[in-house]
Design a binder for these strands. Structure first.
Lengths: 151, 151
DNA sequence: TCTCTTATTGACAAAGATTCTCAATAAGAC
DNA sequence: GTCTTATTGAGAATCTTTGTCAATAAGAGA
């Protein structure tokens, strides 16, 4: 509590200089390893299973940071928990298997334009959108059919 | 606990015959009155304000039923709570104001086709999708500009 | 390399939404 | 009217997520 007026010019206001820690690296790595969307809880379990002593709060904090930095996408599951996934930073959408969680990134330039157009037509500004497609992937589909669980 | 083997043939399996109650009607009515998406908590507050003694659990149960019956649409808010809205049972999407919650129903036939096509192309079956557009409606926009809170 | 500031961490508490439990009530059929 | 049982309300219980705070350690400078 000695230097008060030092950090006033060199840094972004409100961004106090991030530090690289093994915990962040671990979360990032674990997220990259996951095949589809995973919850913070799941990620925490996985990390512990691999010997990490990382705290649950840290996992939440790191995921929130990644999501804000655009390095992860988030999504609400049916069970009211938030799921995360490592992603490219460019804008895109997802095709997600309801059974196994397999996730494909899809692009849809026309869709972006359509969404913006609809918003503008109705007088809305700063439009953003949520577009995700769900279904059963080929593998899960045949697995289901074979076991006779046809709806 | 006397008759055990009676209800085996006449009723749908697992659907024990719904009953009409004033509580259900009240929830349904309150949901219809709301202008945009509302949470179960909000709805419960509203109902209490109007003199109803309905329980919170009942509101949750009723909303879940309505959503399942296709009479209400649900949506996850940023604060990890589920929002509901009375809707037409036909398939549609929403254009939602981030500020005041004003909600417009929009149709997009081409979009439906596109979503199904993308899913099919990647081997996915039984496709469904989540498409919602957010933005600031004209009213909220001008309110913001006038108060000088331009981003 | 050593020191110093302070961002970050981990353990736990706390908040908040949703679900569960269960005795009491009342809808609908006979 | 009677009876069965779906439904209700109140509160407990559960679950996810966020906040708190002392202890730790990353990174810059000496």
């Amino acid at each position: 509590m000695k230097k008060i007026e030092a950090a006033n010019a060199a840094e972004m206001p409100g961004q106090p200089a991030k530090r690289n820690t093994p915990q962040k690296a671990a979360v990032k790595h674990a997220l990259g390893e996951a095949t589809g969307f995973v919850s913070a809880q799941q990620l925490h379990q996985t990390l512990k299973k691999h010997g990490s002593t990382i705290g649950l709060a840290t996992v939440y904090r790191t995921l929130a940071d990644l999501a804000q930095a655009g390095e992860a996408d988030s999504l609400q599951s049916k069970d009211s928990e938030v799921l995360y996934r490592a992603c490219t930073t460019s804008h895109h959408h997802h095709l997600i298997c309801r059974e196994c969680g397999l996730t494909l990134e899809i692009e849809a330039e026309n869709l972006e334009k359509w969404a913006d157009k609809v918003a503008t037509e109705h007088g809305f500004v700063q439009p953003s959108h949520n577009i995700d497609i769900f279904g059963f992937c080929a593998a899960c589909q045949s697995a289901k059919t074979e076991s006779g669980v046809a709806k």
